[in-house]
Design a protein around this nucleic acid. Structure first.
Length: 571
RNA sequence: GGGCCUGUAGCUCAAUUGGUUAGAGCAGAGCGCUCAUAACGCUUUGGUUGGGGGUUCGAGUCCCUCCAGGCCUACCA
């Protein structure tokens, strides 16, 4: 039994996430966590909301709420949606927690002790109307290069030229439109990542089995220009972790907070501490996941994230961990994902384009989404959601191949033998054959899940479902029953056991349907079939069951057309 | 501008890392079955692997070049 620590990139607080966000970290992490638990491993699966930064403050202001109330409310919304998608976090924390405040300040103190923090005086744009410093991209104006009038302070979207906010002609606040701007001096702390470039590079180079997407992004940042640059880790904001040197005040940093990307990954650790607090457990219980001197030396730590998060997880956070000089657990494997597009374009919050988590659950049960998203997860390149593909995939895989298998077996048994596993007959060549096929496919399924090759895993799982239909067709108990009811009984007994097996194997992807299948079979043990032959004899003759409701109703053409229109967005 | 990724059947994807005749699912065609959600099974059509050039006994895989799409480029997170 192994111990596996799993973290999903923490979703930002400022709104409800769309399916592209979901499939890029939380959902695949959940399938992996469920699989690892099912195999009998000890799993700690952590997620949280990422609550700090300018966008959170602006979103709160827009909603007319104080930022802390806004975040608390949005945390609950995201928590409920996570529950709705059956995301099996051991804890869903908040980066604004007291635990994270303390740990973030602690790490900053350790980094300062190690000489890895530097104070830098820089110039920032202050907006009087907004009453705040504005990040570069919140300044808009006319591009000096191409004349585009809505260029942002970091880059012109029209001509792609990189800009400084002071380059803009007629600069204004992107928030209020105010032109009452002023360039002020302000002091900030920088993490001297450049000091750790070689150490980080050696570490990345040692990770031969990581996805190319992960290592190529890391190497780019390590070697771009003059190499890895130092990074500002503080901001002039109200909402965040106040800058402290461990427990001490930090002279000159009064009124400033740590940069959201400094405190967000530390929340992985803090959220595990929050888990201990929430369950009345001592510190030792979370430390054994994170401190290699306190029991975490045998932990395998796997992170899930979209490609946009890779630099922070391959460089900044490891720099924080390594730089602390303390034995905190470093990540062992980083699974990164490309993006999911929506029907020929990108998901867009501002245009209301695409399907968001709350809407998805209003339309269909979570298993439909989980299955489609995970069987199309963008592992190798960006992938695309279309309603036609969604309908076809869900109807064929879930309703026809799996759902109908459960229907035909249970209903046939009920009509001929009653709702009880029938006695009589013996297994023969057909059963041996399908058992051998499933054994081989099960091994492939396990291998793919262990390697976090989720698409390949869903392909094998589906093939295992198909094997049941092939077997039934060959054994044809409906014909056999007329001449040899005992042999038909044996076939049905075997097929009913296949249903139980499918429930167990499918649980990482479609947990609700899995539960329905187990309930219908009147079993509560979902032990992984390490011994397949034994697993296929789990339901003995005489065991009762009931015919379940239809597991997956089909999506009709009319319903599909309706949804397609509803989510097309304003053009 | 620079870097990286992707391009394989109508669609969504594989191809044991250079090794026989490029494979699956869906869609299409034909046949079978009648237990089942008009579901299932079997058979089958369909490819100049984006274009061109090169290395090699051998290239989807390696190199060069062109085309198309995507991502990143450090103050959004």
């Amino acid at each position: 039994m192994a111990r596996i620590l799993i973290t999903s990139a923490i979703p930002y607080i400022n709104g409800i996430k769309h399916l592209g966000n979901l499939v890029g970290s939380q959902l695949p992490a959940d399938a992996y966590a469920r699989f690892m638990r099912a195999r009998g491993n000890e799993v700690m699966f952590i997620c949280a909301t990422d609550e700090h930064g300018t966008p959170a403050e602006l979103a709160a202001a827009k909603s007319g709420q104080p930022v802390d109330e806004f975040c608390a409310a949005m945390w609950q919304v995201q928590k409920d949606l996570g529950d709705g998608f059956r995301l099996s976090f051991d804890h869903f924390g908040r980066s604004s927690s007291a635990r994270n405040h303390k740990l973030t300040q602690y790490f900053a103190g350790k980094l300062n002790d190690a000489g890895l923090i530097e104070e830098v005086t820089e110039k920032q744009v202050y907006s009087h109307a907004d009453g705040r410093f504005l990040p570069d991209r919140y300044i808009e104006g006319t591009c000096p290069n191409c004349g585009y009038e809505n260029a942002r302070g970091d880059q012109c979207e029209n001509c792609t030229k990189q800009l400084d906010p002071t380059d803009l002609i007629n600069p204004r606040s992107a928030v209020t439109g105010s032109t009452d701007l002023e360039v002020r001096e302000t002091r900030h702390l920088y993490l001297r990542q450049s000091q750790m470039r070689q150490k980080l590079e050696a570490w990345i180079d040692s990770k031969k089995d990581w996805p190319i997407l992960t290592t190529s992004i890391a190497k780019k940042w390590l070697n771009d220009g003059d190499g890895l640059r130092d990074r500002g880790i503080t901001r002039d904001l109200d909402w965040g972790v106040p800058v402290k040197d461990g427990e001490q005040d930090w002279p000159g940093m009064e009124g400033k907070v740590f940069y959201v990307w400094f405190d967000a990954p530390i929340e992985y650790i803090a959220a595990t501490a929050e888990w201990a607090d929430a369950n009345n457990k001592p510190d030792a219980d979370w430390q054994r996941w994170w401190r290699t001197d306190m029991g975490a030396d045998d932990v395998r730590y796997v992170q899930f994230m979209g490609k946009d998060n890779v630099p922070f997880h391959t460089l900044s956070f490891p720099a924080t961990i390594m730089g602390s000089g303390e034995p905190w657990k470093l990540v062992d494997y980083i699974k990164s994902f490309n993006f999911l597009n929506y029907d020929g374009g990108q998901f867009s919050t501002s245009q209301g384009r695409g399907v968001f988590m709350d809407q998805a659950l209003e339309i269909l049960p979570s298993d439909y989404w989980r299955w489609w998203l995970l069987s199309h997860v963008p592992e190798n390149s960006d992938s695309e959601f279309t309603w036609e593909n969604f309908q076809a995939s869900v109807n064929k895989d879930l309703a026809d191949v799996l759902g109908n298998f459960v229907s035909r077996v249970t209903k046939f048994c009920r009509s001929k033998f009653g709702e009880v596993v029938p006695d009589g007959g013996v297994y023969g060549a057909a059963e041996a054959e399908v058992t051998a096929e499933i054994a081989s496919r099960l091994k492939a399924y396990e291998t793919h899940m262990e390697a976090i090759e989720l698409r390949k895993a869903t392909t094998e799982l589906r093939a295992i479902w198909v094997a049941g239909n092939e077997y039934l067709q060959k054994a044809a108990p409906w014909a056999m029953f007329k001449t040899d009811p005992d042999t038909a009984a044996a076939t049905v007994r075997f097929a009913l056991n296949l249903i139980r097996l499918y429930a167990v194997l499918s649980q990482p992807f479609i947990p609700d349907a899995s539960k329905s299948m187990l309930d219908a079979m009147h079993v509560d043990s979902a032990d992984w079939p390490d011994d397949l032959t034994a697993a296929l004899a789990a339901l003995p003759a005489g065991h009762t069951f009931e015919v379940p409701e239809v597991l997956f109703a089909k999506i009709t053409d009319e319903a599909r057309a309706e949804m397609e229109a509803r989510f097309a967005g304003q053009v």
